[in-house]
Design a protein around this nucleic acid. Structure first.
Lengths: 208, 208
DNA sequence: TAGATTGTTAATCGATTAACAATC
DNA sequence: TAGATTGTTAATCGATTAACAATC
């Protein structure tokens, strides 16, 4: 029983499919074909059918995919059928904006811990969360058994904090700091850097 | 004279090379081999050499790449040898955090305009920028000849604002709203959605 | 039934990797 | 010179697309 491996790039597309399907459900649709879904997502019907087929046959010939049950299937595949708790390190503008971001609780993500080094910030609240000193990072992450960390610290501290997160049991890191982290292969990392994305665009906007 | 097309994915990697090279320059290094650079970036030497070779031969056999001149070359390739002005729409937590973000001016990105619909916000300042009413979006973008827009509005308004940006002459959009935008092929878009990135991770973290 | 659309296979396309002659 | 490392070509690998039988 050799389980076929699903390419990373396929996994990365599933949340987008899910997002679009949720929107369509909200619009009152019940069924969608791969062609219509593809158009809304700016991709191709063949790709959507191929991607979904890694996990099973969710559609019906002639009519397409039932939106509700496909949403449920994708949520289960992505392990979204539960609440994930997250620890944020860095309570500057960005860390605070993330902690307040409504899109997280709405989609099953709960920011449970928020850390900073600045004694002026420690003890103050961001929404319902009290900022704790970063010295307690390991203890608190272990105590709450948190698996996902968000790095919102300056570049020069990012690697150190990431190392500490990993030692504390973190298995996934969302990195907002403008540096490439060196991490064990067992840890899953995602990098968000608006500057890198803008610089990519600037290449194409050059002909002015 | 058929100019070879450089794959998008190569372009997307160049800013990361540049970021790493800048860090190395700061550390006092003068020269770096593709192998060392690859290790720092978590990629392979062959890929770095191949990527750079699309644009010319920047290295020297035996010693590697001179860091300074490679930085300069990459900056020129990516059109970073000038200041890019940007308009941000949406002055909520996120829009304000982006407007204050130090990483932008440091790397040649100047947030010039900031818009919102909320009359309580219009007229107030975020750093040196005064929030303007979104009604003036077209007029101001045209007046300053701005080519890059950042979307930091709720999902339901994102497509409409994007359409207005495009009509006003915007050619690149950095989209923080959790929706897939439908845009003309001439417009370059980048999507930042932390929820989608976290959901991708959750697939791999599932075995708990 | 006839039309539509899936799931899947095979063909194509493109990107990554390996290997090595050239050369600093 | 000998060792190191580039730039490039060819081989490999993987992902996308096209096509179509199956079937709702």
């Amino acid at each position: 029983m050799t389980k076929e491996v699903v390419p990373d790039i396929v996994i990365a597309r599933l949340p987008r499919y899910l997002q679009c399907l949720n929107l369509m459900a909200k619009e009152g649709l019940h069924t969608v074909s791969s062609g219509v879904l593809a158009e809304r997502l700016g991709t191709t019907a063949a790709q959507i059918r191929k991607d979904l087929s890694y996990f099973g046959g969710f559609g019906k010939q002639g009519s397409g995919y039932p939106i509700y049950s496909l949403i449920e299937a994708l949520q289960e595949i992505l392990n979204l059928d539960r609440i994930w708790q997250v620890a944020v390190v860095g309570a500057g503008d960005l860390g605070r904006a993330l902690t307040r971001y409504q899109g997280f609780p709405r989609r099953g993500i709960e920011i449970k811990l928020l850390f900073d080094v600045d004694p002026k910030l420690v003890g103050t609240k961001v929404g319902p969360i009290t900022i704790q000193h970063v010295d307690y990072l390991e203890k608190e992450i272990r105590h709450h058994d948190i698996k996902i960390g968000v790095l919102a610290v300056p570049a020069e501290y990012a690697q150190k904090i990431a190392d500490r997160m990993v030692k504390a049991g973190i298995e996934g890191i969302l990195n907002y700091a403008p540096v490439s982290l060196i991490l064990p292969e067992t840890v899953h990392a995602q990098h968000i850097d608006p500057v890198l994305q803008l610089q990519t665009m600037m290449y194409y906007l050059g002909e002015d």
